[in-house]
């Protein structure tokens, strides 16, 4: 088990959603400061676009996982909300 949902899980990305969002913010800031050489700027642009895509699909495709702590065993068990 890992802590948190990984963005772009299964691929090369190992960043958490939070890390991805913060990285994206940093990239936009770096680019808007406009002091970067072209090659670096283009690399950041590509990385940023990839993060946008990954974060968006994480939000749109995920379903919150709900677990219940079994307080006797300390194990986590899947918890289903009963429909009304």
């Amino acid at each position: 088990m890992t802590t948190g949902r990984k963005v772009g899980a299964g691929k090369e990305s190992v960043m958490s959603f939070e890390e991805s969002m913060k990285r994206l913010e940093d990239i936009v800031t770096s680019l808007s400061e406009g002091e970067l050489p072209l090659r670096q700027a283009l690399t950041l642009y590509e990385e940023g676009m990839k993060l946008v895509k990954e974060c968006r699909s994480a939000l749109e495709d995920s379903k919150a996982k709900v677990e219940k702590l079994n307080r006797l065993t300390g194990e986590l068990e899947l918890f289903e909300l009963k429909n009304e």
Partner: peptide, 15 residues
């Protein structure tokens, strides 16, 4: 509410 607003979340319930 948690699931709707932030589906990336994982929820651990201690009853």
């Amino acid at each position: 509410i948690l699931g709707r607003r932030f589906p990336v979340a994982r929820i651990v319930l201690v009853p």
